[in-house]
Design a protein around this nucleic acid. Structure first.
Lengths: 111, 111
DNA sequence: TAATATACCTAGCAATACAAAGTATATGAG
DNA sequence: CTCATATACTTTGTATTGCTAGGTATATTA
């Protein structure tokens, strides 16, 4: 039952978290999954099937841009995602929304 | 665009907020909407069409129980919702989930 | 009498986290 | 050398839920 709520509560914040991670530097899919896991201390354990659609959405919205790695030699090709200017602006706005909502929740819950 | 995120971010927390409001005393639908509005300082402005399905879900899950008001005299009938024991237990669990997730988000965002 | 606020109900839509399946390469153990 | 595992990306489909928009009905106020 908790799973149900956990799943729902995560909705809408993944975009924000991914944009935040990409703000410091361009990253590829698997790397993002690992960083989310580490930094959230095991709270955000994404399957790849969850993350990639997020990245594709962000790309469709022009908030990130991708390019394949051009490393020579044998290697599994990696697709790097980079935050765009529009993405940085969106991130700030989304953060503001998050702050408003989580504050609103706190006001109701802290009594 | 912000609306999109706001809508998603609210997912999963409404049940928690409603259960929390019902914890102190039984309340009816419109009353819950007003309290959510006031306590959240205009962040949670629910239309009735949003709240009632939430209440019905909670009732189906036996987390709340309802009874119609038995006030004599002319009055629009009100349906009061009361939190059950299972509801109180669920509320604690949902609060724990919320804490874990919002903490996880903070860890990623506060850098 | 008309408008507004109260109070409840219902159908349908849009968005998204997740599960599950697939493809392909690199690496380490036996 | 072979097989299992980890890496890395892709795609399809499902379940959940906040919201819009419509509906009914009563009480109050201008």
């Amino acid at each position: 039952m908790n799973d149900k709520y956990e799943r729902q509560m995560k909705k809408g914040v993944l975009d924000m978290l991914v944009l935040k991670l990409l703000k410091s530097e361009a990253k590829y899919g698997y790397q993002i999954i690992q960083e989310l896991k580490e930094k959230s201390e095991e709270t955000f354990l994404l399957k790849d099937g969850t993350l990639y659609p997020v990245l594709y959405r962000l790309e469709d919205d022009k908030l990130v841009a991708s390019k394949w790695s051009e490393t020579e030699g044998k290697q599994v090709p990696r697709k790097y995602y980079e935050i765009t200017e529009a993405g940085q602006k969106a991130l700030e706005e989304i953060e503001a929304v998050w702050k408003r909502i989580s504050d609103g929740i706190s006001k109701i819950m802290e009594e």
